[in-house]
Each structure stands twice: as C-alpha cells, then as structure tokens.
Design a protein around this nucleic acid. Structure first.
Lengths: 111, 111
DNA sequence: CGCACATACAACCGTATGGTTGTACTTGAT
DNA sequence: ATCAAGTACAACCATACGGTTGTATGTGCG
C-alpha cells in the first residue's frame, strides 16, 4: 500500500514538463532554487513548490552551500521508476515466452 | 511542446495505482472493461475513465472481440517512458565521465 | 424484431494541483 | 548590528482529476 503511494508520487512528479526540466538541470547539481527559477516563466514560489514535490518523490535532494541550497537530482530515484517499468516489460516477455512455448508444442504435435 | 504534452500524459497516466494495475493486467490482453472493473472497488464508469486515460497516453489499446472490447497493453508506450528515463541516466553518466576526466587530469598533473 | 449485455459519454461533486502574492526565517557581507 | 540574498511557508484562486449516477449507443442472441 505504501509502495503504491511512493510510485504515485514518483510518476506524478515526472508528469510535469517543468519538473522534468528541473530534474535534467539538477543532474549537474550546481544551481540553487533562485537560479533554477530564472529559467522558467513563473514565480519563484511556484518553482520552489515544484522542487518540493520532486524532493518528496525522492527525485532530488537539497544541500546547503554557503547561503544557498543547491538542488541535485537523485539518480536512485530515477532508477526506481526504471525498475518499475522494467518489471512490466519482464511480465510481458514472460507471457510472450509462454505463448511461444504453447505454439511450439502445438506445431510439433501436428507435423 | 507537443512532445512534452505526450510525456505529461504518459507519466500522469502511470501516476495512479489503479491504472498501473490495469496496465499489468492488460499485458495478457484478455479482459474487457467489465471484467477489468470487477477487480477494483469502484464503479464500472470509473474504470472506464481510467482505461480512456491510459488509451490517450498510448499505454493501452482496445480491440473488438465479439461484443466486448478487449483492453491490451501497448508495450511500445511503456518503452517510450523507459527511453525518456534512460536519457536522463545518459546525461548523468556523461556528466560523471566529464568529472572523472577532469579529476584524472588534475591528479596526473600533481604527482 | 426485441431484449440483454458491453461499452460510451455527459453532468455533477469534492478534493488535489499549479499558480499567484505576501510574510517570516537564515545566512553572509558590510 | 544591520541589511540584503536566499529560502520557506501560508493563504488564496482557478482549474483538473477521481469518483459517482444516469442516460445513450452498438452488438449478439433467441
């Protein structure tokens, strides 16, 4: 149940172009919230909220540097999303394999 | 701009536990909307809406079989999400490589 | 044909979301 | 000690979202 909520937060955090761009920019881990905000046509507070959402989703972390707080992407968060998608792919492949096995059986039974 | 909207739809479709479960179930591509709906504690119409959202996101397709419409997961849709996440990973690795190169340079300059 | 089943869609409701402005708390520089 | 930069947070507003019920549409069967 809790796992689902984590995944909800993860994907809904990624479901916004501004937030995805913040994730991309924060891969360098060099900008504070003010600097980030300057890239987007919205208020500083709005960007701050986006960062907070990404933080709660485990996609970025904040680190104090001087009087700024630098935003840095947490690659492990991205990997969590990748793993979930990989699981679907694995289930799908397993099903394809099962079907192939069945098909192989039936064709070898009818020469 | 349009690409962003596609990605928005893709990830926000995945940002709901019920919808993720529908994606999982529809990997088998065997159930119609009514059968799907029976698995969840909500009305048929609600499930129908979820399926519509997944369909618009390109994550499932519907196929008429008899008087039912079978819901089937579109694995290519899942892959689109994977590719996007992979791109972030690639950017991140590129940055790590750049940093390693810089570090190697500076250490070989100070024997 | 006529009925029942599977699906589709519209109207509505409460709550979450993305945005705004305004105020308050730290921290570094002067 | 003071002031400004950087950040945090609360209150508010419009719209989107997840859910409901109710009504239509289309398809198979007797």
């Amino acid at each position: 149940m809790q796992v689902h909520a984590d995944h909800d937060r993860l994907f809904s955090a990624l479901a916004d172009a501004t937030r995805r761009d913040i994730v991309r920019r924060a891969l360098d881990g060099a900008e504070g919230v003010v600097e980030l905000a300057e890239h987007y046509p919205m208020s500083f507070a709005a960007v701050q909220k986006h960062v907070a959402i990404l933080e709660r989703a485990g996609l970025v972390t904040k680190h104090r540097i001087g009087r700024r707080k630098v935003v840095r992407t947490n690659v492990e968060g991205l990997r969590a999303a990748q793993r979930l998608l990989d699981q679907y792919e694995l289930l799908w492949r397993a099903r394809v394999d099962r079907m192939n096995a069945i098909l192989a059986e039936s064709t070898e039974a009818t020469p």
